[in-house]
Amino acid sequence: MIVEIAYYIGAILLLIGALFSVVAAIGILRLPDLYTRMHAASKTGTMGAGLTFVAIAVVAFDGPVILRALVGFIFLILTAPVGAHLLARAACLAGYKPSELTEINEYEESMK
């Protein structure tokens, strides 16, 4: 019984994760500039990959595998914001401008 329930939960987690990945890819296509695209990749994309790890932890029924899946999940959600922040900072300092939709840019003002 518990095995069946775990399988259903795992399946639903897989589907949600895959949907998040697709939405992140659509966001990368649709959003107007680099910085807004970063929001899509760093949050939605990470969530997509992370949920598949959680799905493995749910359906595996094997101690080491569950531990590894959770460690992988934690690793993923810790590195994603760091990577996004590094790239955003590098792009800002190199002088890539945000799109004209951007209303306030106090970072640029501070560098003048």
Binding site: S21, A25, A41, G45, T46, G48, T52, L76, G83
Partner: peptide, 9 residues
């Protein structure tokens, strides 16, 4: 980066 995270999934 997005491609890598899709690959992980």
């Amino acid at each position: 980066e997005m491609l890598v995270s899709t690959g992980i999934a």
